[in-house]
């Protein structure tokens, strides 16, 4: 008998599966964070230009990457839910939005604290910063729209359209430093050429990116379980388990 992966598209089978996955991703997030922070603070050297303030990079870049990546995943599940009417897909999209918004907030907040000592300003209406702020508004708009419509199925559909339209902003954020003359520096890490930073800095940053990624998965799975409980609370299968 072939393994039927589609059975996990049902909230009833996904609910316990998510419950078993949460501890795994939690442990991974903690391990990556501990090692990443150790390398970030005790192994990576002082930056010759910026001094110690550059150590903000170990949370700023991972949060910024996750803010864009989570949006794409959220829009993907929202789009699947819109196209195939799969309930769990829409729930997954709703579960990702608050974490994505939080990652966007962290990227903006840490960027601001980095900008003040290095650029001399907390904020500038630069293409990178402005498009990232728009990303925050897209997340908040998505959540507000979903919460404003009483009928869950209609809320799923309307918010999915908003999420999909907003996808256009993600490449704008990513390429903004190339397309426009921005105060924000260009990418230090790139798939096509060697990174312009010390190996230990890069290692710390990538480990922290993995930590943020695992954290986002763990907390989104916990939130999707909460959403399943709320939406399926009349279903018989939930009466015993939750």
């Amino acid at each position: 008998m072939a393994l039927n992966i589609w059975k996990y598209a049902s909230p009833q089978t996904f609910f316990p599966l998510a419950g078993r996955m949460i501890p795994v991703f939690t442990v991974l997030a903690i391990v990556f964070a501990v090692v990443g922070l150790y390398i970030g603070f005790f192994v990576a050297p002082t930056d010759f230009q910026q001094g110690e303030v550059y150590r903000i990079i170990f949370i700023h870049v991972p949060a910024a990457w996750m803010s864009m990546f989570i949006y794409l995943v959220m829009a993907f599940w929202a789009g699947v839910g819109l196209t195939f009417n799969t309930r769990l897909s829409s729930m997954m999209a709703h579960a990702l939005a608050p974490t994505g918004a939080l990652m966007t907030f962290i990227a903006l907040w840490t960027g601001s604290l980095w900008g003040k000592p290095t650029w001399g300003t907390w904020w500038v209406w630069d293409a990178r910063l402005t498009s990232e702020l728009i990303l925050l508004f897209l997340y908040v708009g998505y959540m507000a729209l979903a919460a404003a419509i009483d009928d869950v199925r209609r809320a799923d559909k309307a918010s999915a359209v908003l999420a999909l339209v907003g996808v256009v902003n993600v490449p704008i954020i990513y390429f903004s430093v190339q397309w426009w003359n921005t105060l924000h520096q260009g990418a230090s890490v790139n798939l096509t050429r060697a990174p312009s930073m010390a190996a230990s800095m890069l290692t710390g940053m990538l480990l922290m990116a993995l930590a943020f990624w695992m954290y986002s998965i763990a907390v989104s799975l916990l939130r999707v379980r909460a959403i399943i409980r709320e939406r399926e609370r009349d279903a018989a299968w939930l009466q015993d388990s939750a």
Binding site: G51, E52, V53, R55, I56, I59, H60, A63, I106, W109, T110, L113, W114, K116, P117
Partner: peptide, 13 residues
Amino acid sequence: GYGLYVWGSYGVT
């Protein structure tokens, strides 16, 4: 000398 900025970032995160 950048304690406020670094710990302000990590603390809020």
